[in-house]
């Protein structure tokens, strides 16, 4: 509620501003001014963010600067449709489309490039609020134990190991023991250099053995 009152007050303030400067609205030669106020993010409020922030109308065709009371006026604009952008190197602001008709009536709406006829009005004089901070940089991944443990490759290595080593011990099923024996027979540690031989025996022998056991299982199941 407090916030709402503040906003209303602000609105009044802007309106008063406009009222005090009636000459700015229309100079009489069909030139108009786009007015607004920029709300900087809280982190910036102390420094002179006004110098860093620019107001571009139609991609720099007209440029406005922000005053120290954080309002801006872009002047001498003929009637037409304009995209107003507030640019800051670190913070993102949403652009607004401002339409000024030949009678000097203003309408501000959200920029929609896809459905160009869709109108979602926003208040005028403009109130530009910083949406978020630009994320330009990638975060460097740091080495963490949890990352290492939950790495799929590590899981792939560790889980089968667990399955092979621990599970059979947990169960006293003789059949499983037999299987385990088979596996451990296959994986019997030879001499270190004969890795290739070990692998070939593991893959060829293991596969056939497994195939036969699973077949046996199926038969059993059917019974």
């Amino acid at each position: 509620m407090k916030c709402y009152i503040a906003l209303v007050l602000l609105n009044v303030f802007i309106n008063v501003l406009c009222a005090s400067n009636p000459i700015e609205e229309d100079i009489g030669n069909g030139r108009y001014a786009i007015e607004g106020r920029v709300f900087p993010p809280e982190e910036l409020e102390v420094g002179n963010w006004q110098v860093e922030t620019r107001v571009h109308v139609n991609g720099g065709e007209y440029i406005g600067f922000i005053r120290d009371d954080s309002t801006f006026v872009v002047r001498n604009i003929p009637s037409g449709s304009y995209v107003v952008e507030v640019l800051h190197p670190d913070y993102m602001y949403e652009p607004v489309r401002v339409e000024i008709n030949s009678k000097g009536k203003y309408r501000a709406r959200k920029v929609n490039y896809i459905q160009t006829s869709q109108v979602i009005q926003v208040p005028y004089p403009l109130r530009m609020k910083a949406l978020s901070k630009f994320r330009y940089f990638q975060v460097r991944e740091q080495w963490r134990l949890t990352d290492f443990l939950f790495n799929p490759m590590v899981i792939m290595m560790v889980l089968p190991l667990l399955l092979i080593m621990i599970l059979p011990k947990m169960m006293n099923d003789p059949e499983a023991k037999e299987d385990l024996k088979q596996i451990s027979n296959l994986a019997k540690m030879g001499e270190m250099p004969e890795m290739s031989e070990m692998f070939t025996s593991l893959f060829s022998g293991g596969a056939s053995a497994k195939a036969s056991t699973s077949k046996a299982k199926q038969v059993k199941k059917r019974q």
Binding site: E24, I27, G28, N29, R31, A33, N48, Q50, V51, F65, I66, R67, D68, V73, R75, N76
Partner: peptide, 25 residues
Amino acid sequence: SGSNPYLVRRWEPATGVLLWEWSLT
């Protein structure tokens, strides 16, 4: 700055902040 209409602007020299501006045709 500009060329008819002109813009008269006043800046803070230390920081470069715009203090006020008015237009002239």
